[in-house]
Design a protein around this nucleic acid. Structure first.
Lengths: 69, 69
DNA sequence: ATTATTTGTCAAGTAAACTTTACATTTTAG
DNA sequence: CTAAAATGTAAAGTTTACTTGACAAATAAT
């Protein structure tokens, strides 16, 4: 699964810290999501998508590897 | 957060076990999701939505309480 | 009414999301 | 060039999604 978080974030010139604050998680969480260390929870995914005004499916790109959990 | 899993599942006359098999989790997981014991992961949410041919946002209804994680 | 199917509960365990703190590296600005 | 801001790394801890197994209750079918 890939995400467009970094892409959308830079487009809007928002720092990781600002995004973290906006969706109420730590900066570490954003870093880890952007660097593929782990996957967002459903609610966090929703909050990030909402923040950028897109759908979850538009922000998070699922692929064949996502057959597993 | 509410889900329409039960609703869509009954509409299609699919058992919890069949859905569980289809999205590759245990029956317990489906029961717990339907009964609000916990929230699906992003990938599971995607697989369930895909299975029913709808978007995540259509299957999982976020509300104000989802400000927290 | 009795059996089979479906749904639910309980509890203990594993895995992964998220936090916290502290520090190191990279990028941007003056 | 140098300082500040932004990004990254590491590690230990908490919480929660998900599993497994065994058994109980409700619904449907014969």
């Amino acid at each position: 699964m890939k995400t467009r978080i970094t892409e959308y974030r830079k487009e809007r010139k928002i720092t990781q810290e600002e995004l973290a604050d906006a969706v109420n998680v730590t900066r570490q969480t954003i870093i880890s999501l952007e660097n593929g260390k782990y996957k967002a929870s459903l609610v966090l995914a929703h909050k990030i998508a909402q923040f950028f005004g897109v759908t979850i499916e538009e922000m998070f790109l699922f692929d064949r590897e996502d057959e597993n959990l």
